[in-house]
């Protein structure tokens, strides 16, 4: 059965929206790895030795995933990875909020601003809703019609 036009377009739009979010998040972190490493260390949840390597690779994983979602190449894995990453980010911010840490989320690059973690959590729930919609629509599109992943 051929997937209906609205499913194809809704999936595409949701996927592109997620791609845009991750690409916008990746660029400032790639340009300022030191600031991003500082942001990660302020979460106080990783051994110090892992902070710099994570600050180096995480933005590029976001960028590569964003490009995959934008182009449609490896989109299925890209959508799944985006959902996993958003859940991981929410967990990190949730523990910071629970512990009362007055930090900047570092989601879209380094800034000196603090006290915004709760807003960042709410925003990430919105992003997760879009990513889950993309995942669901992709699944529906896969079930109703074959197309290359």
């Amino acid at each position: 059965m051929k997937p209906s036009g609205w499913v194809i377009w809704a999936e595409r739009l949701a996927r592109w929206a997620v791609a845009g979010i991750f690409l916008a998040a990746a660029v400032p972190k790639i340009l300022n790895p030191s600031g991003f490493a500082a942001d990660i260390s302020h979460y106080a949840m990783l051994p110090d030795g892992l902070v710099n390597p994570l600050a180096v690779i995480l933005p590029w994983i976001e960028a590569v995933m964003g490009l995959a979602l934008l182009s449609g190449f490896s989109a299925e894995g890209g959508i799944a990875l985006a959902n996993l990453m958003l859940v991981a980010f929410l967990a990190a911010m949730g523990q910071a909020w629970f512990r009362g840490l007055d930090i900047n989320c570092g989601c879209f690059g380094h800034s000196g601003a603090r006290g915004e973690i709760l807003l960042s959590i709410l925003r990430d729930f919105g992003f997760l809703a879009v990513a889950l919609a993309a995942l669901s629509l992709r699944h529906r599109r896969n079930k109703t019609g074959q197309f290359p992943a």
């Binding site: 994983i61 976001e62 590569v64 299925e76 894995g77 890209g78 799944a80 996993l84």
Partner: peptide, 16 residues
């Protein structure tokens, strides 16, 4: 999906 996720993480890490 898993293979694609692993590939994206590997490529991203390598480029980074």
């Amino acid at each position: 999906s898993f293979l694609q996720m692993a590939a994206l993480v590997a490529v991203g890490s390598l480029v980074g």
